[in-house]
């Protein structure tokens, strides 16, 4: 075989790697392929949807994430069948310095949801400014978290993940684990506006994956970073220190909740409903923490 361009060399390398791949890895990829084949999507002639999602990209790059899902975090889902078809908001707790929780939740929807679907993430504004990351996020179905984007996703019948704690949750300290930070109210207004059911999701495990000892927010601002967490391993070990502990993930899906009312109500009235979602997530915490024997099992 002649190798006349870097692309063809890469293609050959990929083929060789494919043949050498152990059978269990191949089976995992086949499982991804089979699930992806059933994902509904409205694609154009080049295989993208209007927001730049590419199922082909997901299929080709899902393997490392699926490995994390199966073998590193050993994710266990409880009641994932409660997620209704059609538009739905998955509202979950957020923790662990890096968004592995979002990654695992969307992987669960893809690998174990029925039907398999690509849960759309709502990313922070600055994610769009990061080279490579922004492209990977868009191809994987994430969008900038504006109300308009979220509403149009729900109108299109998609499953949207929301973490109302935002960075407040992501950078929470170890002592605050399984304690929900203040919730943003935007998701509830959108749910009311678009008449979308909410499924509360309690994620057990992520809150211990990267114990935050302190958050040097002053220094972070100085460097123009969203946060600068101090953990037992970061920044001590450099970027490697950002690797999460191999905690076991448990995803508890609550009963779908429907809310009625006017999206333009006062904050106080919206907050009442938000508190019911919070309570549902906390209920999942209680059950999940009681059911597990340790953070690694």
């Amino acid at each position: 075989m002649m190798a006349d361009s870097p692309e063809s060399v890469l293609a050959i390398a990929r083929e060789v790697a494919g043949v050498l791949r152990p059978s269990w890895l191949r089976r995992l990829q086949e499982r991804i392929d089979a699930r992806m084949a059933r994902v509904p999507a409205r694609l154009n002639e080049y295989g993208f949807d209007d927001q730049g999602l590419s199922p082909d990209f997901v299929r080709q790059n899902m393997l490392p994430i699926a490995l994390l899902y199966e073998y590193y975090f050993r994710v266990r889902t409880v009641n994932i069948d409660r997620v209704p078809r059609g538009r739905v908001l998955l509202v979950a707790n957020h923790a662990g310095q890096l968004p592995f929780d979002a990654m695992m939740l969307s992987s669960a929807m893809l690998l174990e949801g029925e039907p398999p679907r690509i849960a759309r993430g709502m990313a922070e504004y600055w994610v769009s400014e990061l080279p490579f990351v922004s492209v990977a996020a868009a191809r994987g179905g994430a969008l900038v978290g504006t109300p308009k984007n979220c509403a149009s996703m729900l109108d299109a019948g998609e499953c949207v993940m929301v973490f109302p704690e935002g960075v407040r949750g992501m950078n929470k300290l170890y002592e605050d684990r399984y304690r929900l930070m203040r919730f943003g109210l935007g998701f509830m207004r959108l749910a009311l506006e678009t008449n979308t059911p909410i499924v509360p999701v309690s994620i057990i495990g992520s809150e211990e994956q990267q114990p935050g000892l302190a958050n040097l927010s002053g220094l972070a601002r100085l460097f123009g970073m969203p946060a600068l967490p101090l953990t037992p391993t970061f920044p001590l070990l450099g970027p490697l220190g950002l690797l999460p502990l191999p905690v076991k993930y448990h995803l508890y899906f609550g009963e779908p909740m429907s809310f009625e009312g006017d999206a333009s109500e006062d904050d106080a009235d919206i907050e009442d409903r938000v508190d019911r979602v919070r309570a549902a997530i906390e209920e999942g915490f209680e059950r999940g923490l009681a059911e597990r024997s340790g953070i690694f099992s």
Binding site: Y125, W126, T146, K148, S152
Partner: peptide
């Protein structure tokens, strides 16, 4: 802009 939504 990075914060542009789709379908403006």
């Amino acid at each position: 802009f990075p914060e542009n939504p789709y379908g403006m």
